Computed example of a mutant assay.
Amino acid sequence: MKYSNEIVVDLPRDEFIRKMDAPENMKHWQRGLIAYEQLSQKPGQEGSRMSLSYQMGKREMVMVETIIKRNLPEEMHTTYDAKGVHNIQKNYFREEDGKTRWISESEFQFSGFGMKLMGFLMPGAFKKQSLKYMEDFKNFAENGISVLDQ
Rank of each mutant, 00 (worst) to 15 (best):
I67P: 01
G98H: 10
H86T: 09
D97M: 07
K90H: 12
S106T: 11
L72I: 10
F93A: 02
M63Q: 15
N71A: 11
K69A: 05
R59C: 04
E75H: 11
M63Y: 11
E65V: 03
E105D: 09
R94Y: 08
T79G: 02
M63E: 14
V64H: 08
A82L: 10
N91S: 13
A82W: 05
V64S: 08
S106H: 14
T66L: 02
G84F: 09
I68N: 01
T100W: 03
F93V: 03
R94F: 09
G57F: 03
T100F: 03
N71E: 11
R59T: 13
N87I: 13
V62M: 06
G84K: 05
K90S: 09
V62A: 03
H86P: 00
K58G: 07
E60T: 13
E105L: 05
M76Q: 15
E105I: 11
G98Q: 11
M63H: 11
I88L: 11
H86D: 04
E75R: 15
K69D: 15
N91D: 14
Y80L: 02
R101C: 01
L72S: 07
K69G: 01
E75Y: 13
I103H: 07
E60W: 06
K99E: 07
R59G: 04
A82M: 14
R70M: 07
S104V: 15
H77Y: 10
G84H: 06
N91V: 05
W102F: 04
M63C: 06
E60I: 04
I68Q: 06
N87G: 00
M76D: 14
D81T: 13
L72W: 13
I68R: 07
G84S: 01
T79Q: 09
G57Y: 03
N91W: 03
V85E: 14
S104G: 04
V85D: 06
G98R: 10
P73Q: 07
M61Q: 13
R101I: 02
R59K: 15
S104R: 04
M56W: 08
R94P: 00
R59D: 10
T79R: 10
W102D: 00
D81N: 15
H77R: 05
N91L: 11
F108V: 09
E105A: 02
V62S: 04
H77N: 09
R70E: 12
F108R: 05
H77W: 10
F93Y: 15
I103M: 09
M56L: 07
M56G: 01
W102P: 00
N71Q: 13
Y92S: 12
N91T: 03
F108Y: 15
E107Q: 11
E60F: 08
V64Y: 09
R70F: 08
E60M: 07
D81L: 12
M61Y: 11
V62W: 02
W102T: 01
N71P: 02
I88P: 00
Y92V: 10
V64P: 05
R70N: 12
E96C: 00
T66F: 07
M61G: 02
E107C: 03
R94G: 00
F108W: 15
K58S: 06
E74S: 10
I103K: 12
W102Q: 01
N87T: 13
A82F: 03
N71Y: 05
K90W: 13
V85Q: 14
T79D: 10
G57N: 07
K99N: 08
E95L: 05
G98A: 03
Q89R: 03
M56A: 08
K69I: 00
V62L: 08
T79F: 06
T78N: 09
E60Q: 12
K83R: 07
M63I: 05
